[in-house]
Nucleic acid binder design. Structure first.
Length: 562
RNA sequence: UGACCCAUAGUGUAACGGUAGCACUCCGGUUUUUGGUACCGUCAGUCAAGGUUCGAAUCCUUGUGGGUCAACCA
């Protein structure tokens, strides 16, 4: 049992209760059961963190079980991607298992059910069966095949298995209760004929078990103590238990299904179908587009495993529908990167500054701290010269006292360098500023200890030396949707809320030269701008950066309020 | 015209019959060679009405609101 150092979520409370009622802690076992038909997203991450987190908390094994009962939709590619994502999140599964491993056992048990008169073969079409099923408010009626003899059922089921019938001609159904208020109990399908090649069992099987028949029995085979799934499976629990009743021996562990609310995130969609739509319609570049809420998208965007795990922990787990604020995820990545990401200088929207009293041709190396939050991060040198770039929006010809940046006749500190004063601007015919002419205070060099270097100047801005700068591509990402719950409105298509400015590509950003040898997935803070990581598309000499998340920006907020 | 689930600051979650707390967001301030970080502070909540009880966010009833269920998907 866990000592009460933090509040337990309701699932942990259930486990504690089971333990208190005599469940042997060694019997605790969990599982994460994805269907390999798509990529994992942040919602899955919540489930992964929950199940593997319980494993860690209780020192219990957690199986990775691929729920691969539908060969029509499942592929090895997804199996591989899912495994990679879980490993990347930093979790280790006990056993890698597949529902398809249990096809024979499931078949044998189905035969048992037939023998007990609890299952029958139905020859009707799906339409006919749907008609007989009734509605939530009206009971269903029995199938004309419901009372077939055991012998006939056995024979037909075996022939289904042998591939003697076409798809759609026969199914095996559990004989439960066509009048049950729970639609799932109205003689649910256990098997359908599918003459498709399975990614693991190949052509061996012509019939495939349905989810409900498979899931609980798989939990039972694996002796999963707590089978945790999302709320929409609540109604399945009755059937889960019914199927278990048919095979439960009475003297081993009986799995227990419990349900929790899936994790939703604001400003995105989470359904596989909708994510697939975004990919297929080319609205994003792929499953790992940095705007996607997929694990692979978040990874490419620059999110770290720790930030995602901390987010999951902070968001918690409960039974009510929710839309968690994207700001919470952003908080956790900033929080981590603030401590770990080296600071560098990059200018994304350059304007040229000429320091007129700095000798032409001279250059010097200045010392820059790599991370003020990490004393062990050390320092590096950066080149300074007469001509530099600064951000265009860090200069105004005239501005009020609130503008802590460069303006005509006023001083500003160049980060890690000198204090400069703007004297003049050069413009083109249209009035666009081409150059800002400044003078520098030679005695104000950062870290020199001189009186001038200690002067308090209100603003400090970043810069790069033009002669030494690396040119790079920078991709600025923003939320994919403008609405916090894009799929909440049933009248509107979620794609209407796509943010047209979710990606802005800057072809000619300028970086300090220390970044020459960066590798994909390296993280940096571009000072005063945000956290950026090196994209997979990046090559030596053709660097590509993604903005993971911007820094908090109280200046931008002030400006916006005006 | 059913069954089941859910309802606590803007958001997400605690409190398990005994002082409604935490985090994020927002807002204000201090420090700062990042308008970042750190630190301090403010605002803000038990869906409603009854009932049980010395005492109710918690238990009961009713109502209201939201969600789920009628795939040979999982």
């Amino acid at each position: 049992m866990i000592e009460k150092k933090r509040a337990l979520n309701f699932l942990e409370q259930i486990i504690e209760e089971d333990l208190a009622n005599g469940l042997n802690p060694d019997k605790l076992r969990f599982r994460f059961p994805p269907e390999p038909n798509g990529y994992l997203h942040i919602g899955h991450a919540a489930s992964i963190c929950l199940n593997f987190g319980l494993g860690l908390t209780y020192d219990a094994p957690v199986n990775l079980r691929f729920d691969d009962t539908n060969p029509v939709k499942e592929e090895q590619e997804y199996v591989d991607a899912i495994k990679e994502d879980i490993k990347w999140l930093g979790f280790e599964w006990d056993k890698e298992l597949y529902s398809s491993d249990y096809f024979q056992q499931l078949y044998d048990w189905a035969v048992l059910l037939i023998q007990k008169g609890k299952a029958y073969v139905d020859d009707q079409s799906s339409e006919e069966m749907a008609r007989q099923k009734g509605t939530p408010t009206r009971p269903g009626e029995n199938s004309p095949f419901r009372d077939r003899s055991v012998e006939e059922n056995l024979d037909l089921f075996e022939r289904m298995k042998n591939g003697e019938f076409d798809e759609g001609t026969h199914v095996l159904r559990a004989k439960i209760d066509m009048a049950s208020p729970n639609m799932l109990m109205r003689d649910p399908l256990m098997y359908r004929i599918l003459k498709k090649s399975h990614h693991r069992t190949g052509e061996t099987w012509k019939i495939y078990p349905m989810y409900d028949w498979t899931h609980g029995e798989s939990d039972y085979i694996e002796q999963i103590s707590h089978s945790l799934c999302t709320l929409e499976f609540k109604h399945h629990r009755e059937l889960y238990d019914w199927f278990l009743d048919q095979v439960y021996s009475g003297d081993d562990l009986r799995p227990k299904q419990r349900e929790f609310a899936r994790r939703n995130l604001s400003y995105t969609v989470m359904s596989k179908r909708k994510l697939l739509q975004l990919v297929e319609e080319g609205l994003v570049a792929g499953w790992d587009d940095p705007r996607m809420p997929t694990i692979s998208g978040l990874r490419r965007r620059g999110y770290t495993p720790t930030s995602i795990r901390n987010f999951s922990e902070a968001a918690g787990i409960a039974k009510r529908d929710n839309v968690t604020d994207l700001a919470l995820l952003e908080f956790h990545i900033r929080n981590e990167l603030n401590k770990t990401a080296p600071r560098v200088m990059a200018v994304l929207d350059p304007v040229k500054v000429v320091i007129t009293n700095y000798p032409d041709g001279r250059e010097e190396q200045l010392l820059a701290e790599n991370n003020p939050e990490d004393p062990d991060a050390g320092s590096r040198s950066i080149p300074f010269s007469r001509e530099i770039y600064i951000e265009r929006n860090d200069f105004r010809e005239v501005a009020n006292k609130k503008f802590f940046r460069l303006k005509l006749g006023h001083e500003v500190r160049l980060k890690n360098a000198y204090i400069i004063k703007a004297n003049d601007v050069v413009k083109d015919e249209s009035g666009k500023i081409l150059e800002i002419h400044c003078t520098y205070d030679e005695d104000s060099k950062s870290g020199s200890g001189s009186e001038a270097s200690m002067r308090k100047v209100k603003g400090t801005i970043h810069w790069v030396s033009i002669a030494h700068a690396l040119k790079a591509e920078v991709r600025l990402y923003d939320r994919l949707f403008t609405h916090e719950a894009p799929d909440a409105d049933k009248e509107k298509d979620f794609k209407e809320y796509i943010n047209p400015e979710s990606l802005q590509v800057i072809q000619d950003a300028y970086l300090e030269p220390s970044l020459e040898k960066v590798k994909p997935a390296d993280h940096f803070q571009f000072q005063r701008l945000g956290y950026f990581n090196v994209d997979d598309d990046s090559r030596p000499g053709a660097l590509v950066f993604n903005r993971t998340v911007a820094l908090r920006d109280s200046w931008a907020r002030m400006e916006q309020k005006k």
